[in-house]
Amino acid sequence: MKTMTCIVCPMGCRLTVDSGEVSGHRCNRGRDWALAEVTNPVRVLTTTVALEGGELELLPVRTLAPVPKAKLRDCLRHANRLRVKAPVRMGQVICPDLAGTGVQLTAARSVAKI
């Protein structure tokens, strides 16, 4: 039996998983998250990457889908090597496959060129 705090939404439900059965959830997303959490926990990674020629020197980015928690470090290392050129539009793919996870890294905001 494992108990955890759901991170799917700000409600923060207390979930229990007991031999594949979830309790304490108030939505299906919470149930699915709990099952993933005991087998392959995943997280959305948000960070910044270096931006050249833009109004800002850092571009905030996110993984479009959650990545395995165990690969967060590799994902960060990969993101830290990226260099992006302005202009950038929100949603633009910055990296098609972050650290071999198959997950895209996308721009979280638009930045104009200077």
């Binding site: 700000p10 959305v44 948000t46 960070t47 905030p60 996110r62 929100m90 979280a108």
Partner: peptide
Amino acid sequence: CIHNGFGLHLFGEELTGVE
């Protein structure tokens, strides 16, 4: 706020603050 967790009520999805 580059982290995610924004917009669930309004947009039905998890956005970063920046998005």
